[in-house]
Structure formats: C-alpha cells, structure tokens
Amino acid sequence: MPENNNNDVVLRVKDLHVSFYTNQRCNNVLRGVSFDIRRGRTLCIVGESGCGKSVTANSILRLLPDLSRIESGSITYYKEDGTEVRLDQLEKNGKEMRSLRGKDIAIIFQDPMTALNPVYTVGHQIREIIKEHKPGLTKQQLKQESIQDLAEMGIPAAEIRDGEYPHQFSGGMRQRAMIAMGMSCEPKILLADEPTTALDVTISAQIFDLMNGLKRDHGTAIMMITHNMGVVAEMADEVAVMYMGNIVEYGKVEDVFANPTHPYTKALLRSIPVLGKGRNQQLEPIRGVTPDPFNRPKGCQFCPRCDYAGERCETEMPSEEWVKEGHYTRCFHFREVMKDGK
C-alpha cells in the first residue's frame, strides 16, 4: 500500500508475517498482510475458513499462542495525542500492552468461551472491564451499567441474567455478553471476530446499530471479520478479501462488490446462496480444495483452483496492483477478470 499518512489512520498493519511452530513444522500463516484501520470507519475482512483472519486480529493485540511468532512487518497504533506505538515491539504481556487492551483496542473473540470465565457471573465480568475504564463508580452504579449493557444487547430480564453464569446462557446470549464486554469501554479500535454468527438477523441489526453508534459518537474504528456477505454489504466502508495468508483484494465495498478484480473474490461472491430459490438452487462452491499449508502452491496461492491461471501464476506470487484509487488486487490477470464482469 502506498504511504498515505492520512491522520485518520489509527492502526496500520504493514507486511505482517506470522508463523506457527507446531509438530516441529513451521506454518507461515500470515504472509505479508497490510491494511489500515481508520477512525470512524469499518473495515470488513472476509475470506476462506482458516485463511488467517483471526490470527490477524489476535496479532494486533498480541494474543497469539506461545508457539507462534511475528516474523516481520509492523503493527502501529496512532494515538490521539499523536504518539505512535509499535504494538509488534511491545512485550506481549507487559504493562503497556495490557493497558491498551480493552481500553484503547478491544476485541470480541470468535469463540465466546475463550473470553468468558466459567466461574464468574456474566455481570461480574462486564463490571471488571467497566471498572478499568471508569474508575470511581460505586458498586450500585457499576451494577446498573452492566445490566444496561446486557439489556442493550437485547437480552431479556437483564437484571436476572446479570447474576447468571456463562453456562446458563444460550449460545447467542454468550456471544452478546462478549460483545457487551468489548463495547463497554468505548474503545478507539474495536476488533470484532465473527461477532454475530450465532445471532438472528433482528438482533444482529440491533447490535450493528450500537456499533455504528460507537463509530459515530466516539469515532471508533471497527475491524470486523465476517463471512456473511449481507453483513459486509451493510456494515463495511472498506472490505479486505483474504486467501491463504494474504489480502488478495482490498477496496471500498461498493467497488469490490460491483467490480471484483480477483478470481477468488468473484468465486466467493458467486457461491452465496440466494434466498427464495429454495432447494432447486445450485450451490456453487469454489472448485478444488484448500491447499495444505505445509504443501503450498509455489506461485499464486489460488492458482490450483483458479479459472484464469496462466503460466506465470504457477511460479510467482503477484504483488499488490492498484486497479483504481483505494482498490487493489493481487492477480496477474485482473484485467481479464474485470472484463468478464461479475
């Protein structure tokens, strides 16, 4: 991405490489990921299951497991007072990183149970976070806040639920408790990893309204990982499409949906089931299978499954090419892809 030192940028990830070392083998999960998160805007990240979306989010907050390493690249957080913090260089569980978590940058995890502690009530866990953010509240006030947070998430009888344990919640309620925890501090950056997978559309809509409220009133920048294209269409300003550890296409949501320039994006958009066609509709999964990360294609990672692939694709990974302002792609044959339309 070109240097564009727009002061709207609150977080810049540049050429990030992350590897996991398990079973004495090295899995290069992120292979040069770059993007910006901007104040008051929403970036949606979509991509195949296992392509590295959660690892990207967890890298920002330095929450990767022990057997992994940021190999190279940078993650920079631009504070409101103009200082820059290199998150990738901070000590993982040091004081500075801990003080940023939740308060400046909050995360809603994909798996609610990693965030919720089974031995404390849900209300208690929300209050722990509010306490950090708003010291000096009385016990009573804290309780009121946590109850209100749950109620805003559309959880009925929030006074009772506040005193219940995570296992007494339904799947979707657990997810909402976690969203409440992530949002309660009005963070500068909200990283939401598949926040509404267990929620029906009505409640998701209500939660998206709340997120948009944060964005509007506090200038919160949102990075949302989702596989639901309906959600992307509705929430995103920009969208990044990931495949096997790279962002293969990035741009304004209107541009990417109207003019997909990467064969993967195009195939992905084509496999969305359409309501109203019923059982007669032909689902079109992308042909072939996800490559084994330990046995990756040499060139473009999408090559073995791609309808446009040529000789060069087999040996060389394409770099980022600008299609127009704010819209880039990683494909040698993007002109053909564009010419073919959706």
């Binding site: 299951s49 596989h227 294209m229 089931p273």
Partner: peptide, 8 residues
C-alpha cells in the same frame, strides 16, 4: 462459522 464456499 463457515465462509459461503465451504458452507456450500
């Protein structure tokens, strides 16, 4: 939790 293609 699956993307549309794998879901399909």
């Amino acid at each position: 939790a699956l993307d549309v293609s794998i879901q399909a």
